[in-house]
Simulated scan of single mutants.
Amino acid sequence: MRETRAAYLFLLPALIFFVGFIIVPMIMCLVTSFFNYTMTDFTFVGFGNYIEMFQDPIFIRALKNTVLIVIVAVPVVTIFSLWVSAAIYPLHAASRSFFRCVFYLPVVTGTVAVAVVWKWMFNKYTGLFNYVLNAAGVIDENISWLGDERFAIWCIILILFTTSIGQPIVLYVAALGNVDNSIVEAAQVDGATNFQTFWRIKWPSIMPTTLYILVITTINSFQCYALIQLLTSGGPNHSTDTIMYYIYYEAFKLYRYGYGNAMGVFLAIVIAVFSAIQFKVTKAGSVD
């Protein structure tokens, strides 16, 4: 009993922080989503905010953009990270560390710095992309990459991809190092090819890591906000709005906290459903 009390006393600061800044705000978010909560009003509206949400054309467009980002970014990040990890893992330790550092660098670089560099590269008049494409004769006139509805959301996805692959690569390299080499060697002695060895032994063995990468990448993609705020502010014509950015816009620019909280609750449910599906799929393909 004394040890238990001591353990809870050591945990108390973290528990207070967790309850005060995570659990309580979550409950408040859920409760206030049923109110018309603004700077001057606090009226119960039931499911009014949720009904309005699905009748709001801007929210529907933000939802489509968010789903597009998730559908494109998550599988591409996972597959590319796995391919790069499988390629660099057999290298010498120094070379492997070098590549891990290179790919992880955008993760530890500040989002603002990354956004400034990409904004320059996408600049219509002095940007690197327009310069290269003009020099190669691919385009005749400069393209406003972030100011054109046809390209803006894809530019955001490209930037998100480059900032999302660092952590999965590091995790996959570590996971490949934990695969039982005796099983791999036995399969190779029996005549298994490199592809068969990877597909039948290594891939199922690193499935728990894949689950973690899928879930984390999905959450990060659903919560894409900083790049939108720094590069496009949802424009042009709401073509790069995401649910997370639209929550910020409604809650902190229009001061419609109840409506913003309703969208937050909906986003949390969607993320939970996606994560549950990923858990089921990856668990079926993993090995003990």
Score class of each variant (00 low, 15 high):
Ala7Gly: 02
Leu9Gly: 07
Leu9Pro: 04
Leu9Ser: 10
Pro13Ile: 04
Ala14Lys: 00
Val24Ser: 01
Ile27Arg: 02
Met28Tyr: 04
Met28Gly: 08
Val31Ala: 12
Thr43Tyr: 05
Phe47Asp: 11
Tyr50Ala: 09
Glu52His: 15
Phe59Ala: 05
Arg61Ser: 14
Val67Thr: 05
Phe80Arg: 00
Ala86Asn: 05
Ala93Val: 09
Arg96Ala: 14
Ser97Ala: 13
Phe98Leu: 12
Phe99Trp: 14
Phe103Cys: 14
Phe103His: 09
Leu105Val: 03
Val107Ala: 06
Val108Ile: 10
Gly110Ala: 08
Val112Gly: 06
Val114Arg: 08
Tyr125Cys: 03
Tyr131Glu: 07
Asp140Lys: 09
Asn142Lys: 06
Leu146Ile: 01
Glu149Phe: 11
Ile157Asp: 00
Phe161Asn: 00
Ile165Ala: 11
Ile165Pro: 00
Ile169Gly: 03
Gly177Gln: 03
Asn181Ser: 15
Val184Asp: 05
Ala186Met: 07
Phe195Trp: 13
Gln196Cys: 06
Trp199Lys: 10
Lys202Thr: 08
Pro204Phe: 05
Ile206Tyr: 11
Ile213Met: 14
Val215Ser: 06
Val215Arg: 08
Ile216Thr: 15
Ile216Arg: 12
Ile219Lys: 13
Ile219Pro: 04
Ser221Tyr: 05
Gln223His: 07
Tyr225Lys: 12
Gly234Cys: 08
Gly234Asn: 08
Pro236Asn: 00
Pro236Asp: 10
Ser239Gln: 12
Ile243Leu: 14
Tyr249Ile: 10
Gly258Asp: 02
Gly260Ile: 03
Gly260Leu: 08
Met263Gln: 15
Gly264Phe: 06
Gly264Asp: 02
Ala268Trp: 12
Ile269Asn: 06
Ile269Gly: 05
Ile269His: 06
Val273Tyr: 09
Gly285Cys: 07
Ser286Ile: 10
Asp288Leu: 12
Asp288Ala: 05
